[in-house]
Write a protein that binds this DNA or RNA. Structure first.
Lengths: 240, 240
DNA sequence: TTCTACAACTGGTATAGACAACTATTCCAC
DNA sequence: GTGGAATAGTTGTCTATACCAGTTGTAGAA
């Protein structure tokens, strides 16, 4: 399980090992994991190295320490779902609704000035522009336009664009998403909004503009959405 | 500077010491701090202990490590302002606007069913109900109604309610605020909204409902706000 | 039977030292 | 000048050890 000659640090190998154990169910939620001294003995490594691995998992929220009692597997990942709520699909699922979407257009074009600025790319760089109607339980919920730099997410096609972009990025490109900013404003429906969302002109709508960033602070997606105000309210928790 | 006989752990003393150095300007933004070995020598402590202090400061965002180069002071603390953005005053200040408010009414009444539920109090418990017009640079920005349980924040009067409620709670009651949830939706102005916000009936407005919680998870404030959509957009950052 | 003291566990703090990996600079050979 | 090696500095990883401080179960005393 642990390879001391690997260039991958031992503490990191142990982190992955424990994570897998949690995901496999070998380590059960809310229950104690082996003590630091046991891990040290088990893999013939120093206790301090074990502590380094466990420290990282604690700060990632997988484990929780209790002096004198032991280290325990954290119970829920509800928090992490909140973070994942940046995607329409996950948002709807967490509300108990069934999400789907209709692809309106998929194109690759040169970024306009404003988009280039938001995505921190050059104006001559190309971007995917993906337009969709987002449905919840079969009823139109939002009109969405996504702008993604081709340079950062190559190989996106009309087919795979329908899957989870976030999953694609994390699994296929080995990048990970760290942060997103959102700007939310109210407006009223124009002719196009009214038609696609099946509401009347002048009805209230919620405009949400989201920019998502990779761990290095690089923007990889700009999404502009128009939500039906009668069906959608934005919910949000702030900590600290 | 470091007291080895103190019950306070050395690494924590060092953390505080370095934090103060940063706040005092003794350690300048973007520049290197003394190396781990220098700190160890300086205070006659082990390098691992220094590393523990620095690790904590790194994860708190004060410092940033660079292998082979040194450890550097992080440049901005803009993030921390985001957390304080739960109050209208701080929100406006952070946007570079000058906030003020007009008190419309201040009363103490029995909570209605819905409010009692949100604040997790009994229906017969009394609450302050404070209505205000919120102005930015002298122009109406929002209509706000706050509901606060008397039991939790006793001694609130028409006079001191105009000061920062958050500051009052943290300083006078020695409680601290840990979390807030917000629900945001779009609507259109009715007669009352139009009059107080100086807009037309049917104009888009942003409805924000916020519940703030103390560290123990006890709700202490419910605020319902109606914002002019032409002047206000809600901005928000999600991490991880 | 009930209580107390202790023993045996847990994680928390701290030390001293070793070597690896990375960065910047200096100096030398070409 | 350019390229490369040597060097000295940095953080990163890892070990082995020690003692402190909470928690829990239990053996023994009352």
């Amino acid at each position: 399980m642990i390879n001391k000659n690997s260039p991958v640090p031992i503490y990191h190998q142990l982190e992955e090992y424990i994570k897998h154990q949690i995901e496999n169910g070998a380590l059960v939620e809310e229950s104690v994991i082996p003590s630091e001294r046991e891990y040290a003995e088990m893999f013939q490594i120093s206790r301090m190295t074990v502590r380094q691995a466990i420290n990282n998992l604690v700060s990632e929220g997988y484990l929780k320490r209790h002096k004198g009692r032991g280290t325990f597997v954290t119970k829920k990942k509800v928090e992490q779902e909140l973070q994942g709520m940046t995607s329409f699909t996950e948002d709807m699922l967490s509300r108990g609704m069934n999400p789907s979407s209709i692809l309106l257009s998929f194109q690759i074009t040169i970024a306009d000035k404003k988009t280039a600025l938001a995505l921190r790319i050059k104006e001559e760089d190309s971007v995917y522009i993906i337009k969709r109607i987002r449905l919840a339980d079969g009823a139109p919920m939002a009109l969405e336009t996504a702008y993604i730099p081709v340079k950062i997410v190559p190989g996106l096609t009309e087919e795979n664009s329908n899957l989870s972009l976030y999953q694609y990025i994390e699994e296929n490109l080995a990048l990970s998403i760290s942060e997103a900013t959102q700007e939310i404003e109210a407006s009223t429906a124009d002719h196009l909004d009214a038609e696609t969302l099946e509401i009347n002109i002048g009805d209230p709508i919620l405009l949400i503009e989201r920019i998502s960033y990779l761990q290095e602070g690089i923007p990889f997606e700009l999404v502009k959405s128009t939500f039906r105000a009668d069906r959608y309210r934005f919910i949000h928790t702030m900590k600290r």
